[in-house]
Write a protein that binds this DNA or RNA. Structure first.
Length: 562
RNA sequence: UGGGGCGUAGCCAAGCGGUUAAGGCACCAGGUUUUGAUCCUGGCAUGCGGAGGUUCGAAUCCUCCCGCCCCAGCCA
């Protein structure tokens, strides 16, 4: 390939560079990655970044990517979440093949490893209470104190640990701890807890266990048991890497994967943590995990985002180690780009204003041919009914409009898309309120199809629907969920205070062209001059259509008005 | 005032000692257009957190300083 042809390729991020080098050096001829969610909530756009990274590397280097559920804390986890997570990963377009794993699959092995640790005098059972433990841990600047239980004999530790497993002790009375260094400047190395007693039913192992391993102990071993080569996680785990390596160095394990950290995604005007998303759901501030305003994968799906748009977005933002804030506009731009190519164009009127074409014959309904996509003839055409009474957008008429207003005013001529030129003659108003009830216009029969034989031009082309044949529907308009860039910023103010009360506006008098009658729920269309909309997959019914606005079109006119 | 991570444009982000510091978003100015959409063209960092130093040559190496993020769960 000529060098010039390579210039469009996106440069490798630092993780792909490492993977590339490991392949070249023969250290890891094919990488094995994993996406390891805890099944304690729904996946969100932040997870998509990790999914695209892990599955993306796998497919680029022809290696597998495992889906592994990090289910070591049964008090928060549910089977419903594992289902939704699998659905979302698949929907995003990724495939883990046979490589579906659960940390809970390794509970037996993990227990045996813990016994090995005890036998090597690298772990001990500790009876300190949680409060005492905190005191003994020390602070950021002061070293901790060694546990009075740290010198128990191997035999005693073995017996106590067995007792923990057998349910002989109360929750909180004992934990198993790694024996490392209470004076370590890294708090994670101050004899961290690796097992705790929890009398909780586990969604997969039921009541078999009453002790559960901690993340730091489990994750590295799970990675090793699955022969993961590159264990990718977010920056806040960098401090845990010494522990990750310690466990794998002390124990006889199949492999020693490399943990690499990257920056998590921050998006403006939203919150990302599962805990906060959960609050919004629980407090009924949104309609559920899949509320179209939520940046969960299921919310985005219902909003009309395509898998490709989310993948493109993740590619666009890149992988690095700086704390970065991505503007919502970047996400919106990603859907627009995809939908612009694939969404059929149709006409829909959000706020209808009646127009009577006074010189058009009364009982005539005419077929108008319209393109389904202006740049893609392969998408074909459709016919639109046209008649004497139509509806246009209320915002497409303005009395005493400025010169630059390319729409309707008394005496002005516009083109009805694909149909005729019309000229506004008069306005009918409600005598008491002054509200505009309808417009009287005339059409030029010579302009059929939208072109004037005399070559005269009109600046504006507006969308319309035929009054008698249009379908009424509901359209839900969405705005950002929060009205500040970072709802988490002020620790003294609850993030819910920043909720945008206008985040959902339901328009119930909308009218769309009749071709939409049998549209499949979930499909996307562009309402010309308005934006991209998708038929809601939950609430839409035949005869009672409900659309979600995915995103508006770029609108330089609206910008100019400001 | 412990440890770890990070500072390149309004927002992301390449750059890995050697021509005028990629690219995208945003923004601005034109052009095409039966969507004020799309598309196309051009503009947009004498500058890489700051100050010194090394070098013929520094965003890249060294020193000091400044700023931001993370860590004291029996969460992940």
């Amino acid at each position: 390939m000529a060098p010039t042809e390579e210039t469009t390729e996106k440069p490798l991020d630092f993780i792909r560079q490492i993977v590339t080098e490991d392949k070249k050096s023969g250290k890891h001829p094919t990488p094995v990655t994993r996406f390891p969610p805890e099944p304690n909530g729904f996946l969100h756009i932040g997870h998509a970044k990790s999914i695209c990274l892990n599955f993306g590397i796998a497919s680029e280097f022809n290696g597998p990517c495992h889906l592994r559920f990090d289910d070591t804390n049964p008090s928060k986890e549910e089977d419903a979440y594992v289902k939704s997570i699998q659905e979302d990963v698949k929907w995003l377009g990724f495939d883990w093949g046979d490589n579906l794993f659960y940390a809970s699959d390794y509970f037996d092995k993990l227990y045996d490893f813990a016994v090995e640790l005890i036998k090597k005098e690298k772990a001990f059972v500790c009876d300190l209470t949680a409060d005492e433990m905190r005191e003994y841990r020390g602070t950021l600047t002061e070293p901790g104190k060694e546990s009075p239980y740290q010198n128990r004999s191997i035999e005693e530790n073995l017996e106590l640990f067995q007792g923990m497993k057998d349910g002989k002790f109360e929750e909180g009375s004992h934990v198993l701890r790694a024996r490392i260094d209470m004076a370590s400047p890294n708090l994670n190395m101050r004899d961290p807890i690796i097992y705790r007693i929890m009398n909780v039913h586990h969604h997969r192992t039921g009541n078999k266990w009453c002790i559960y391993p901690m993340y730091d102990y489990t994750h590295c071993l799970s990675d090793s048991l699955e022969n993961i080569t590159h264990s990718l996680c977010t920056l806040e785990f960098a401090d845990h890497r010494p522990m990750y390596d310690w466990v794998l160095d002390v124990l006889e394990t199949p492999s020693h994967p490399q943990q690499i950290e990257f920056a998590r995604l921050n998006l403006s005007y939203t919150v990302m943590s599962k805990r906060k998303l959960m609050q919004l759901v629980r407090d009924n501030l949104v309609s559920g995990w899949d509320d179209p305003r939520m940046l969960t994968i299921s919310g985005l799906r219902r909003r009309g985002y395509t898998p490709k748009s989310i993948r493109d977005f993740c590619k666009e933002i890149g992988i690095g180690k700086r704390d970065s804030w991505i503007d919502m506009g970047v996400l919106e731009n990603a859907v627009r780009n995809d939908l612009n190519v694939i969404a059929p164009r149709v006409m829909g009127v959000l706020d209808p204003l009646k127009v009577v074409i006074t010189n058009y014959p009364k009982d005539t309904v005419e077929d108008i041919i319209a393109k389904n996509h202006p740049q893609n003839p392969d998408m074909g055409t459709r016919t639109l009914p046209f008649s004497r009474e139509i509806f246009i957008e209320r915002t497409d008429f303005l009395e005493n409009a400025p010169k630059k207003f390319f729409r309707l005013d008394i005496g002005r001529e516009v083109r009805l898309r694909y149909a005729y030129f019309i000229t506004c003659v008069s306005v009918v108003k409600d005598e008491t309120t002054g509200k505009i009830l309808e417009l009287h216009c005339t059409y030029d029969p010579e302009t059929h199809g939208g072109n004037a034989p005399d070559g005269r031009k009109v600046k504006g082309t507006i969308h319309w629907v035929s009054a008698a044949q249009s379908l009424s529907c509901e359209i839900r308009m969405y705005d950002r969920l929060f009205n500040v860039e970072n709802p988490d910023e002020d620790k003294d103010v609850d993030f819910k205070e920043h909720l945008n009360p206008q985040s959902l506006t339901s328009l119930t008098n909308c009218l769309v062209e009749p071709s939409l009658e049998n549209l499949k729920p979930g499909s996307s269309v562009q309402f010309e001059r308005q934006g991209y909309f998708c038929l809601d997959s939950k609430d839409s019914r035949p005869g009672k259509l409900v659309f979600n606005r995915t995103v508006g079109l770029r609108d330089s006119w609206a910008k100019r008005k400001k």
